[in-house]
Design a protein around this nucleic acid. Structure first.
Length: 729
DNA sequence: GAAGACCCGATTTTT
DNA sequence: TCGGGTCTTC
């Protein structure tokens, strides 16, 4: 055990060995947060304060959950597989599988991922003859999810106008459709299990008594429902919990809260402090990742935000190099510079995978990719299509879902005519009508309507029936193999000259099922350990849940020695020796849309803070005077965030090395521009009220002359030269 | 049922 | 400008 606590710094040690009470740990970037979390669990267990079954550890991503589990397994001589360590969604799924009856769900309930949910909503709107121009499916989906994340059912939703009242009706219809089909979406997993615990007092008390210690990672990212769920399980109380309540150990960093747009409530941190009457907050401020200059810059930047819990990162490592700032003429010039610079670093021996190119929005990756590609530098873009999102995988899984649950209309619609088997729009509409008449599923309608044994619909029904009966007792991988065969998927992709990759992916799916079974058999099921959890829907249902909840590794080329490209959001939690933060321009980063949002600029600043703190040794900040956006050249001002960094930490760098990149003649746009009233496009100007800006366009001449100026945060303005007092800056 | 025309929108995203 | 999504046509 002394080993366990060795090498912890004082605050880390304090957090790990905190007596049984609620706590909030403010863990800065690179401060050893995961270490504290896992060591805390190991310490609690190894000192006999709690058994492994008394721990509930919650994360947001599967990656974090796995990491916690494997680190724990290395620290403790116990099987961590059966422990309740997982994502909010994974744990809720587990709860609902165990108590599906009490939760009012079928044993084989399926989970809709975002794409399935959207498809389900589109189908709903079609069935109800709702104009999807007036009620865009995506918007409705967001409406429904946002309500669920607030813990609101349709009945509780506020219908403040006619439009919203209709949306609430559609929310109701959507709930009914999900119930009919035996499916739950992601938000439903949480809401349903919250309601289960809230309404079923004995069950709730059972879990409250079981989980003595609840540990939450990335607490700043919790939404209202997730916080309510935690409070319910912890049985809210005072500092020393009553015997019936668990200890809530929340770890988070308000400065790294960057997911407000998907419902994260930064206010949950203060609420936690207040509602659980936390006497103090433990701060982990010593950073083990970055050099001093980088931390000083990050500290200075984030200090501009108001209402922080407050925290200042420091390091024992030296100041390190200055932060390099580069101003490019254009986005292309910026990419050129970055690629040149990183090529030099690679020549000096920096591993390519230790270099990250960060950007605010995905569209920015193109120029970078183009230059990397032409220079023959291997790179990997994070955030692409994931394994279980691929169409061929979704098709195969849809067959599997139909076998498990014939009422799943989403699955039915996906594969009824894929591969094509002559069931066109007419047949499907007929089925939909019939299904609506009898208030049953499409599959049922198909089965009863398929009188003519020879019809395509009848053949499809027979296919599913055959698959179901013939594969009942076969192991999952064999089932999948047969289904790929008999459904005609294999044949279809075999015939497709570009189907090779897809066939390989289908084989990979079979492998995934094999691997899944192996892992499953390695973990003792709950029913055997304490008898409280009823058996779930079998390996088929749990594999399908696994496929929905875990989208799979990102994409091929995983292990390759490649430069890493990703959005700043995607970079959270990662670290690299060298980081390039690109596109630091007003309107891009901070993003112009953020100006409209409540506390938008502060969220952008936190995003910048996250970006800065990814770097271990070297940090580049770049911006361009000109950028191609939506097919048009935009003239850009440097990001205001650059000014918020202490100049002493920065070093402006001039265009590197050998070839002189020709400065575009005339304006940055290239073409010679007509000067209007002595002003030209691309010129920096100053306005008495709006401040500094760049001229973006001109119009008219003489006393009619107008110029469009990008004032960055101040927005884009057309000004008549006659009235506006613009001075060259 | 597949290929081509056409229109619209365009931060960030895990589960 | 580009890509996705829908609509149109053979």
């Amino acid at each position: 055990m002394s080993d366990l606590l060795a090498h912890l710094n004082a605050p880390q040690l304090a957090a790990v060995t905190l007596p049984a009470q609620h706590a909030l740990i403010l863990a800065g970037a690179g401060s050893g947060k995961t270490r504290v979390l896992t060591t805390r669990i190991a310490w609690l267990i190894s000192t006999g304060q709690v058994g492994p079954q008394g721990i509930l550890a919650v994360t947001f991503t599967n990656k974090a959950a796995k990491e916690m589990q494997s680190r724990l397994a290395a620290m403790l001589p116990i099987n961590t597989r059966g422990m309740w360590i997982g994502t909010f969604h994974g744990l809720c799924n587990r709860l609902l599988r165990a108590h599906y009856r009490e939760a009012g769900l079928p044993a084989q309930f399926q989970i809709l991922d975002a794409a399935d949910q959207l498809a389900a909503i589109k189908r709903l709107l079609k069935n109800l003859n709702v104009d999807d121009q007036k009620f865009p499916p995506r918007e409705l989906m967001h409406f429904i999810n946002a309500h669920k994340e607030q813990g609101l059912r349709a009945a509780q939703a506020e219908a403040y106008d006619a439009f919203t009242s209709r949306r609430v009706e559609l929310y109701t219809e959507y709930e009914a459709q999900c119930r009919r089909e035996g499916v739950v979406d992601f938000a439903e997993l949480l809401l349903r299990s919250y309601e289960l615990l809230q309404r079923n007092e004995p069950l709730c008390q059972h879990y409250q008594a079981r989980f003595r210690h609840i540990l939450v990672d990335e607490f700043q990212d919790t939404n209202r429902l997730q916080y309510a769920w935690l409070k319910l399980l912890a049985g809210r109380g005072s500092v020393i919990p009553e015997s019936s309540a668990a200890c809530l150990f929340a770890v988070g960093d308000d400065d790294q809260s960057i997911y407000a747009f998907r419902g994260a409530e930064i206010g949950n941190m203060r609420d936690l402090q207040r509602e659980f009457a936390l006497p103090n907050v433990i701060r982990l401020e010593q950073n083990y990742r970055s050099h001093g200059n980088i931390l000083d810059a990050a500290n200075a930047l984030i200090q501009q935000n108001r209402g922080r819990l407050g925290k200042k990162l420091w390091t024992e490592a030296g100041a390190g190099e200055p932060i390099r700032v580069f101003e490019a003429y254009s986005d292309v010039d910026e990419a050129r510079f970055i690629v040149e610079e990183l090529s030099e670093l690679v020549r000096e021996g920096v591993g390519r995978h230790q270099i990250a190119l960060l950007y605010r929005s995905n569209a920015q990756s193109r120029v970078l990719e183009h230059h990397l590609f032409t220079q023959g530098i291997p790179y990997r873009v994070h955030g692409g299509l994931r394994f279980f999102d691929r169409q061929e995988i979704k098709h195969a899984l849809a067959y599997l879902r139909l076998i498990a649950n014939p009422d799943d209309d989403t699955a039915f619609t996906r594969v009824v005519n894929f591969p094509t088997r002559g069931i066109g729009g007419r047949s499907i509409e007929a089925l939909q009508d019939a299904a609506q008449q009898t208030n049953s599923s499409l599959y049922n309608a198909a089965a009863s309507l398929a009188g003519k044994a020879g019809s395509a619909v009848a053949r499809f029904v027979r296919l599913i029936e055959t698959l179901r009966s013939e594969t009942r007792d076969l192991p999952l991988p064999v089932v999948i193999d047969q289904l790929i065969d008999k459904s005609g998927l294999r044949q279809h992709y075999l015939a497709d000259k570009e189907g090779q990759d897809r066939l390989e992916n289908l084989d990979e799916l079979i492998n995934a099922a094999t691997a899944f079974l192996h892992e499953e058999s390695g973990s003792p099921s709950d029913s055997s350990s304490d008898g409280e959890v009823a058996p779930d829907g079998g390996p088929l249902a749990s594999f399908l849940a696994h496929a929905s909840l875990e989208a799979g590794e990102h994409q091929a080329g995983e292990g390759e020695e490649a430069v890493q490209l990703m959005t700043v959001h995607a970079a959270k939690g990662l670290e690299f020796d060298v980081v390039f933060i690109t596109g630091l321009e007003q309107g891009l980063f901070p993003h112009e849309n953020a100006a409209q949002e409540r506390d938008g600029l502060e969220e952008e600043r936190r995003l910048m803070y996250v970006a800065l703190t990814r770097a271990r040794r070297r940090l580049y900040l770049s911006h361009a005077q000109t950028r191609l956006l939506h097919g048009q050249t935009r003239y850009c001002l440097p990001s205001s965030f650059l000014e918020e960094l202490p100049a002493t930490l920065l070093r402006r760098i001039n265009r590197g090395g050998g070839q002189v990149s020709a400065r575009p003649t005339g304006s940055p746009g290239g073409e010679a521009q007509t000067a209007v009233g002595g002003l030209r496009i691309g010129q920096n100007v100053r306005h008495a009220r709006f401040g500094a800006g760049v001229i973006v366009a001109t119009e008219g001449s003489g006393s009619e002359a107008r110029v469009q100026v990008n004032f960055g945060a101040g927005g884009m303005k057309w000004l008549a030269l006659k009235y506006a007092r613009l001075t060259p800056a």
